[in-house]
Amino acid sequence: MMDKVPQLTTDNMPSRNAAVGSDGVDLPGAAIHCTDAEPSLKSMITKVARGPEVNVGGRAPVLRMLQSVARSSSPYLFVEDACHDWPGDAAAIRTAWNTGMFSSFLAETADPDFISFDQRLGLLHVRGAPLHTALARTDWDEVERQFPHLNLSQDFVYDVAVSFAKEERPYIELLFAGLVRLGHPVFYDFNEQDRLLGSRCDDYLERAFLQQSRFVVVMPTITYGTRRSHLYEVELFREKLPRDRLLPIFDISKPRGPFDSLFDQGHLWLEPDQELAPQAAHHAEVISKKIGSDVAAVLRRGR
């Protein structure tokens, strides 16, 4: 359990018309009171904006949610509104909602009297004028500069997409969870069901795999690539996806499959007779480092 951000309380708030911000500037209409014994609202916002986990190549979904609230005249913000504001971070924002990350993080770090998240509705609520005013007047460029390890200008919606046969789902579930914990948005079918429902699946998958994902994890097995449900993905990867964007994971117990040509490039091993969780956690860390190296290379070129 992480330490809670020390909070303002209604007992120490002055009247709304006599407020002073953390930088000493008058904030008309806001009730903000900061003593030497408690952090400023600016400090509180920065700590919450940092999010539950950060890493090289990771995203900042909580930061994006707060920035969207700051742009709005309303203290309420739906997840999909933030996704519209930050399309490059939409997958990370939705994943933080789907996995309960927003709810658990805010419950651990922020007083619900000031900020809360409705998991069912996907609704962030900033309660009271003081915090909403402070958010609106926050220098977000400065906040972002405090997180140089994050790539906040994303070239891809997803850091990773996963393609696999259904027999591999128990392992893929663990890999997905591990990558999410490390801060990566992942294209995983069970995390996209509401958006896949009623959509043209082939078009949706082509965008996700070819245009929106930095890397594609593929598990080449004898069943993968032979079933109708996989044939479209196999053809996409063979014909349109550069090999260096494919990250193969080979199950050592399975016979040769249609993607054995990937065996001559760097790959990871899965031993199904061993416990899956530690293997998935290790693989997630290796893939995360790969993502981080790729992001760092892009950032260096941009300097």
Rank of each mutant, 00 (worst) to 15 (best):
K4E: 03
V5N: 07
L8W: 05
D11Y: 10
D11W: 12
N12L: 08
M13R: 15
G24Q: 09
G24L: 04
A30R: 01
I32C: 03
T35C: 09
T35K: 03
E38R: 07
L41R: 04
L41A: 06
M44V: 12
R50W: 05
R50Q: 09
G51P: 02
N55H: 09
G58E: 01
G58F: 01
V62D: 13
L63F: 15
L63R: 14
M65V: 14
Q67N: 08
R71H: 12
S72W: 06
S74D: 09
P75G: 06
F78T: 06
E80I: 12
D81H: 13
A82G: 13
A92E: 08
I93T: 08
T95Q: 15
T95L: 14
T95E: 14
A96D: 12
A96G: 15
W97R: 08
N98E: 11
T99M: 11
S103Y: 09
S104T: 14
F105Y: 15
A107M: 12
D111H: 01
D111L: 02
I115D: 08
I115F: 02
I115M: 07
S116D: 13
Q119M: 09
R120D: 11
L121V: 02
G122D: 05
L123F: 00
L124Q: 11
L124S: 10
L124T: 07
R127K: 13
G128S: 07
T133F: 02
T133R: 04
L135W: 13
A136S: 13
T138K: 03
D139V: 03
W140R: 07
V143C: 07
V143I: 15
H149A: 08
H149Q: 15
L150A: 03
N151Y: 00
N151H: 04
L152M: 12
Y158E: 02
Y158Q: 05
A161Q: 01
S163F: 02
S163G: 00
F164S: 01
E168L: 04
P170H: 08
P170S: 06
L174S: 10
F176H: 15
L179E: 06
V180F: 12
L182Q: 10
L182M: 11
G183I: 00
H184N: 06
H184R: 07
Y188C: 02
D189F: 03
N191E: 14
R195E: 05
R195G: 03
G198F: 08
D202V: 14
Y204D: 03
E206D: 13
V216I: 15
V216Q: 12
V218W: 10
M219E: 09
T223V: 10
Y224P: 03
Y224F: 14
R228E: 15
H230L: 04
L231F: 11
L231W: 05
V234P: 04
L236P: 13
L236T: 08
R238Y: 06
E239F: 05
K240C: 05
P242T: 01
R243N: 04
L247C: 03
I249P: 01
F250I: 04
D251Y: 00
R256W: 02
P258L: 14
S261C: 11
G266T: 11
W269K: 08
W269M: 07
P272L: 01
L276S: 09
L276F: 08
H283F: 06
A284E: 03
A284M: 05
A284K: 02
V286S: 00
I287E: 01
S288H: 04
K289W: 01
G292E: 06
V295H: 07
V295D: 05
A296K: 13
A296I: 10
G302D: 15
